[in-house]
Simulated scan of single mutants.
Amino acid sequence: MHSFAITAPDRGMENSLKHKVDRKTKPPGSLGQLEALAVRIGLIQQTLTPSLDRPQMLVFAGDHGAAKAGVSAYPQDVTWQMVENFLAGGAAINVFCRQNGLGLSVVDAGVAHDFGGPREGLIDLKVAPGTANYLESPAMTAAQCAQAIEQGAGVVFGLAAAGCKVVGFGEMGIGNTASASLITHCLTGVPLADCVGRGTGLDDAGLARKQALLEQALTRYRVAGGGDDAFAVLAEFGGFEIATMVGAMLAAAEAKMVLLIDGFIVGSAALVAARLEPALLDYCVFCHRSAEPGHRAQLQALRAEPLLDLGLRLGEGTGAALAFPLAQAAVAFLNEMASFESAGVAG
């Protein structure tokens, strides 16, 4: 597996960036989180004049063996049907990417469906047609997990070589909130009950069943001697879309790109990636606070303050696409807003 070389941005120009922000024609701190965001993007790119060239959204799709056991309100076929919807341009993520000028590609990391050869907008990285059922065995082998990480990295290194400076992360996979709940519990220590939500809309009985099934999976893992090593937890409970996303995130940080982190499922991949390479977090912009309860545990563990809190729980990368204009605004004011000196305003 690729050995990632991720180093924290050189903070030597942080004071220069902060001075540039503070000398704009406004009271200090009056643009709130946008000021910190401008400094962060400047540090990532090591420049006083950052840019968000060739922005790209990647939606990672995969199926989960545990979905057939009832951890989701929707049947597994919805995964491939939604991928077709993405490819046809009809989903929420398509609308928001079009609105905000983001390129969009769908990565088939392990959907249990044959999409019929090369398709425009579809990147075929299928490891297998869905993971195994983690109620009975690990979701994937160590080799499959490593393959997914490697393949995800390859896609993003390709984007970086083509001049992309910002990449958004989204996902699609029936059952993947259950995976995210297990990963979040194992890597944060927050009680499993506080990491499990309604996902695609479970009722009370469905939520109780999901909770019981995940407790069962966790017990099987612990009895087998499973610990809290990030790679082992990912292989045990993850989906191919989550593992592929981990590799993509690690590559994006190595390439010094801005990472737009969506909600709960993308957050579970960020948790894993940050455990493997802690410096990754310096490259992440956490875009929103999901309505899924486990997302709060993730954000707290990662010490992240998201840009938006809209009660979103759709996934697909929608929160990242909606937050992208805020990143654009942060860069724009840093580059274009007059300083007190240039405007002749007493500051």
Rank of each mutant, 00 (worst) to 15 (best):
A235V: 09
M257T: 05
D204H: 11
Y283I: 03
F240S: 11
E236D: 08
T219D: 14
V266A: 14
A148Q: 04
M172V: 14
K210Q: 05
T177W: 06
V285I: 14
G225I: 01
V272M: 11
L260W: 03
G158H: 10
G158S: 11
V166L: 03
A217Y: 01
F169E: 11
F264P: 13
V156M: 01
L214V: 00
L276G: 06
G267K: 10
A224N: 09
A291R: 12
S179L: 06
A251Y: 04
E254W: 01
A224T: 00
V266Q: 10
V166H: 08
Q147F: 00
V285S: 06
E215G: 06
V223R: 14
D203C: 07
L271C: 07
I265W: 07
D203M: 08
G267Q: 12
L260I: 01
G158Y: 11
G168I: 11
T184R: 01
V156N: 06
I174T: 04
C284F: 00
H288R: 08
I265R: 09
L192E: 02
A270C: 15
L213S: 05
S268R: 09
A212I: 00
A161L: 09
E236G: 07
T177S: 11
R289P: 02
T188S: 05
V272C: 12
I242F: 05
A160V: 06
Y221V: 00
A160N: 08
A253Q: 06
V272Y: 11
A212F: 08
N176S: 13
S179D: 13
Y283A: 05
V223W: 00
I261R: 03
L218K: 00
A251M: 00
L187C: 02
L159S: 03
G197Y: 02
T177Y: 08
E254F: 03
A161S: 13
G238V: 01
G247F: 12
C195A: 04
A269E: 07
Y283C: 09
V285K: 01
R198Q: 11
F157Q: 14
T188V: 09
M172K: 12
R289E: 13
A232D: 15
G173I: 07
A279T: 02
E254K: 03
Q147R: 15
R209Y: 02
G238L: 03
M245N: 08
G163T: 04
G197N: 00
A148D: 03
L182W: 09
A208D: 14
V246A: 10
V272F: 11
E277A: 15
S181L: 02
R209I: 00
V233K: 12
G263P: 13
A153K: 09
N176Y: 12
V190N: 07
E215D: 12
L159T: 02
E150Y: 05
S181T: 01
A180D: 08
G154L: 05
L202C: 08
S290F: 07
T188Y: 08
G158D: 12
D282H: 15
L218D: 07
L260S: 03
Q151I: 00
D204S: 14
G225D: 01
G158Q: 12
H185Q: 11
G173E: 04
R222N: 02
S290W: 09
S290G: 11
A212H: 12
A252V: 06
T177D: 08
I242P: 10
A180L: 01
A224D: 10
G227H: 10
F264L: 13
S179I: 01
R275Q: 14
L250E: 07
Q216Y: 11
